[in-house]
Amino acid sequence: MKVLLMGHPNVGKSVLFNRLTGTNVTVSNYPGTTVDYTKGYMRLENKEVEVIDVPGTFSLEPKDKAEEVAVKMLKENRDAVVVCIIDSTKVERGLYLALQIIEGGYPVVISSNMWDVAKDKNIQIDVERLEQILGVPVVPTIAISGEGIKELVSKIKKAKSVEIETIVKKVGGET
């Protein structure tokens, strides 16, 4: 099994990668710190699992070289579980990429990261309802302090692929 960490630039993919694998890839507070992928390993139920830190991308239609690397990594790893990291203060934007990945048929877990910043901004996210609609695990995380990481790891094996029609039906109304 492989785990891909994907999400928009500067949402904390590399911080999460370091947490999961115990390695030290460069982490900074500006978009575009990671422009190439890094591989690492984590233990999941006594098995070594490959984790790949993918450069940030807004969508699956690349607009620069770093995003090209991201899309290529996704396409090359058809069998991977994707941990989709979204910025909790910008859920809509994050969901765009998450839905694209779900539509591609990948099993997905969503890490709703920067949960603390969302709290500061008084943004309330109904995680249960979100899980219900999407049909994939959603875990609030603060990668920088490590909160929620254990739960995220425990949910990786519960990742599953979902038909987009199911989501459309669950949310009610037609698309």
Binding site: L95, Q124, I125, D126, R129, L130, V171
Partner: peptide, 8 residues
């Protein structure tokens, strides 16, 4: 639609 039901 999703965000209307989940984010405030």
């Amino acid at each position: 639609k999703i965000s209307k039901q989940t984010v405030k």
